[in-house]
Amino acid sequence: MAKKLVTLTVNGETHELAVEPRELLIYVLREKLRLTGPHVGCETSHCGACTVDLNGKSVKSCTVLAAQADGAEITTIEGIGKPDALHVLQEMFREHHGLQCGFCTPGMITRAYRLLQENPTPTEEEVRFGISGNLCRCTGYQNIVKSILAAAEQMNAMKEAAE
């Protein structure tokens, strides 16, 4: 199959890649760029394990063609925090036991990261609705919701302190 050249800026780094027109973004990220944080749980847009941030929106990268993402700015879980500078969400998920097997976690945090930019002061209901595209089989969500609300609070406090 004739390949197509695409440019993807992922976690701040720009890559030129030759991809097949049918290649899914999730596999390009996982297998070509070796960013194995986003996972594959269904390939049918239901589970959200593959969630990445694409041009400022949460998308399920199992349902986006790499060719469609040409020129896009993409953030994956690997770009959200660094080992010595974790994102508040990453800290709060640990603090409030917001994960168990960890398989949904990268997608969940990536979604929450965008959610808190769309709505920095969400109610519990808004968090629940906002992450309803991401399934978790282990936690029953209660502690995930708690983690996100705690992160929102901290981020707002930090913002206030900075102002």
């Binding site: 996982r30 297998e31 070796r34 960013l35 194995t36 944080g37 986003p38 996972h39 594959v40 994956t76 879980i77 690997e78 925090g81 080992p83 974790l86 969400l89 990453q90 800290e91 998920f93 640990r94 603090e95 036991h97 994960l99 960890g102 398989f103 976690t105 990268p106 945090i109």
Partner: peptide, 21 residues
């Protein structure tokens, strides 16, 4: 006690079978 596993999982650094190449 907070979980030691979470440090890698929250950073997308878990190592699941499909991550093996």
């Amino acid at each position: 006690r907070k979980r030691v596993e979470d440090v890698r999982f929250t950073q997308g650094k878990g190592h699941y079978v499909d991550d093996i190449s």
